[in-house]
Design a protein around this nucleic acid. Structure first.
Length: 666
DNA sequence: CGTCTCCAGGTTTTT
DNA sequence: CCTGGAGACG
């Protein structure tokens, strides 16, 4: 069905070459909109057609969204079941490797994965224990430092040496709690492969064909991981102009490493099938200001299309209204569905205003990112219970729930546990057992009883949840048994709406678990697999019911996606390029420019950009300048909409509104 | 000793 | 707006 003739018809010569070169190492430099995803999916389908077994193919991506999309597209192209094909993010693949052999590194296979919040708690706890002064506990900086040290991006020196004990205590903590952090998901498999060549051999034996998408975003560790696994058939696909993750260790110099380490055939895809000539020219105009890049020029066979429109709303509320109204207008005039619109922003915090405008105008939307569902307190509470049930030694989550709902275990009791754990050199859970059972236990009878009750609840549900099916039902029972609803009612006694909202969230968590465990493609719906999955999936709630909704997201999250109509909100100095980024990189804005480039190239037909004249930032309203990148778009492609000057009548009306507002507040 | 209440503070992007 | 921490209170 995918014979060479059809492929030749469907693809341009470069694409054809990329799809049919299945042996050896190839580097595909794929400009924005050049049909990259198509090439990848066709390539895998072609390999399967040639008779290469699914099990020999490993495709690595960076986001779950990308992995899912790739799997879906291969599925619909080949009409085959893909049970043995591995399409996964680097991190998820790391989890898989660790789940099989982490015992060789001295962990148990029910390890917990710590997300950012867990990690912060652990760092704080270590700092407290080591008596670091509060001023020295710059959690953000320490978190980065730990990550940089762990991944070899930084070494100890006189400026950071004081945090060495903290780092060691952090690492010991993870080990004691049988937990790993995100960095470990890449670093530990590498360690495992190096110390246990027989484990590596197993994977090298199995995977004969490896493919890496968004290669420009690989970190050194991810490259090493891939390099260890790869034999000779490796295809990497990337675009240095779209490298936007250097802050988390991505280094597009890996493209050069790759050319050095393998015998590489390079293929360039430079024809853009996505955007109008105008949009593409604008993108080229912007990115050409970067000096450090592989020179290339994307071209398009599509017509010029409509000009890019730039608006200058007064403030973020104005901007949000403008976007909402424009969407309503265009949807009606051009008969576009809501899911044809993408609204892109630099930071999650911008989303609030736009969301509000959408709600007011009854525009259905989905937002990926923001306060993620799994970061909501009520959801974290439930998940913490599950984590402790899965892994008794997960101390961070144990502490989180040991007194939630309130069961009389306060600071002093926890201190007692801590001391006991240190004394016995064991985990908190075992310390709890010890305090309850030991003859000369320092714990009072009431405290003992509180501990016992808590352990009983966990144990009882552990028995149920670890065996058999029907996960969601059992978790529902757990939530009832701990009286979580009553807990919420007392905790938020003034705010009944909040309680209902939170219970609704829990309900939708339970629903999603039910959907997951009943998915026929899911061959092993146990609690461990569920927990691993959701930690890595903190953001995209990729649901079928996202269809027909406007897509609101950060520019980072939009990579790899495209929309017929795109709005870029907040194209202002300080936001893009972000003030923080400018500061950290000593004025180098090349990565921010790439980010802006990514944003522009998401658009197919029509691009709107808005730049507010004022923006509220931490209570303060300040005047701001339009982004310097706007001037880099060739002027002939742009239609500027100057803000209308405020007339006397309007000033009068505004004053009236202001009075009205004052009155309503009194 | 545990809980309740009030107050300050809040970093860009994500696995 | 919401969360976490410090201190008062029971």
């Amino acid at each position: 069905m995918l014979n060479l003739e059809t492929l030749k018809d469907e693809l341009n010569p470069q694409q054809f070459k990329a799809v049919t070169t299945t042996e050896g190492a190839i580097l595909i430099i794929a400009g924005a909109g050049s049909g990259k995803t198509r090439v990848i999916t066709f390539r895998i389908a072609h390999m399967l057609d040639k008779g290469i077994p699914q099990s020999q193919i490993l495709a690595l991506t960076f986001t779950n969204k990308a992995a899912k999309e790739m799997a879906d597209r291969i599925k619909s192209l080949t009409q085959k079941k893909l049970q043995n094909l591995t399409v996964s993010t680097f991190h998820a693949f790391g989890v898989k490797v660790l789940r099989a052999d982490i015992d060789k590194l001295g962990y148990r296979d029910n390890f917990s994965i710590y997300d950012e919040t867990d990690r912060v708690s652990l760092i704080k706890e270590c700092g407290r224990e080591l008596k670091f002064s509060p001023e020295a506990m710059d959690i953000y900086m320490i978190g980065n430092l730990i990550s940089n040290i762990k991944t070899g991006r930084k070494n100890w020196d006189s400026s950071n040496d004081m945090y060495r004990p903290l780092y060691e205590s952090y690492q010991e903590g993870l080990k004691l709690f049988n937990a790993v952090d995100f960095d470990d998901l890449i670093v530990l498999p590498i360690k495992l492969f190096k110390e246990h060549p027989e484990v590596l051999a197993k994977y090298r034996e199995r995977y004969k064909y490896i493919m890496v998408d968004e290669f420009q975003d690989t970190s050194h560790q991810q490259y090493e991981f891939m390099h260890l696994l790869a034999d000779k058939n490796v295809a990497v696909v990337g675009d240095d102009d779209q490298s936007i993750y250097s802050w988390r260790g991505a280094d597009y110099q890996n493209i050069i490493n790759f050319e050095h380490d393998f015998d590489v055939t390079e293929i360039r895809l430079e024809q853009n099938y996505r955007s109008t000539g105008t949009i593409l020219e604008a993108a080229n105009g912007v990115i050409s200001h970067n000096t450090n890049r592989k020179d290339k020029k994307l071209w398009s066979g599509n017509g010029a299309g409509k000009p890019i429109e730039i608006f200058m709303p007064e403030d973020e509320t104005d901007e949000a209204d403008f976007i909402a109204e424009s969407i309503l207008g265009i949807a009606c005039e051009e008969k576009r569905k809501y899911d044809e619109f993408g609204v892109l922003m630099r930071s999650n915090s911008q989303g609030r205003f736009i969301e509000e405008a959408f709600l007011q105008n009854n525009i259905p939307y989905t937002m990926s990112g923001g306060t993620s569902f799994f970061e909501r307190k009520e959801i974290k509470d439930v998940i913490s219970y599950l984590r402790v049930i899965a892994n008794h030694d997960d101390e961070i989550n144990l502490i989180r729930i040991i007194n939630c709902p309130r069961r009389g275990i306060g600071r002093a009791a926890i201190q007692l546990l801590n001391d006991e754990a240190n004394l016995q050199g064991c985990s908190m859970w075992n310390a709890m057992i010890s305090l309850v059972q030991r003859q000369d236990s320092p714990a009072s009878e009431t405290v003992k009883e509180d501990f016992s009750d808590f352990m009983k609840i966990i144990e009882e549900h552990r028995q149920k949840i670890l065996t058999g099916r029907g996960l969601s039902q059992k978790i529902r029972q757990l939530i009832e048994d701990i009286n979580y609803k009553d807990h919420l009612l007392t905790e938020y006694s003034k705010n009944e709406k909040a309680v209902r909202f939170k219970m609704k969230n829990i309900e939708s968590l339970l629903n999603s678990i039910e959907v997951w465990e009943n998915d026929p493609d899911n061959d092993n719906p146990n609690i461990f697999n569920y927990l691993n999955r959701i930690t890595l999936m903190s953001r995209d709630n990729d649901d079928e019911n996202d269809k027909g909704k406007v897509n609101l997201m950060t520019i980072h999250a939009s990579k790899g996606l495209e929309f017929p109509v795109v709005f870029i909100a907040g194209a202002e100095e300080g936001l893009i390029p972000h003030a923080r980024s400018v500061e950290e990189n000593n004025g180098d804005v090349e990565e921010e420019r790439r980010l802006f480039y990514v944003a522009i190239t998401r658009a197919r037909d029509k691009l709107f950009i808005s730049s507010c004249r004022k923006r509220r930032h931490m209570q303060m309203v300040s005047e701001i300048e339009p982004s310097r990148f706007l001037d880099e778009i060739p002027a002939n492609l742009v239609e500027y909409h100057e803000p209308k000057t405020v007339t006397i009548e309007e000033t009068g009306k505004m004053f009236g509104d202001f009075l009205q507002q004052l009155k309503s507040q009194m």
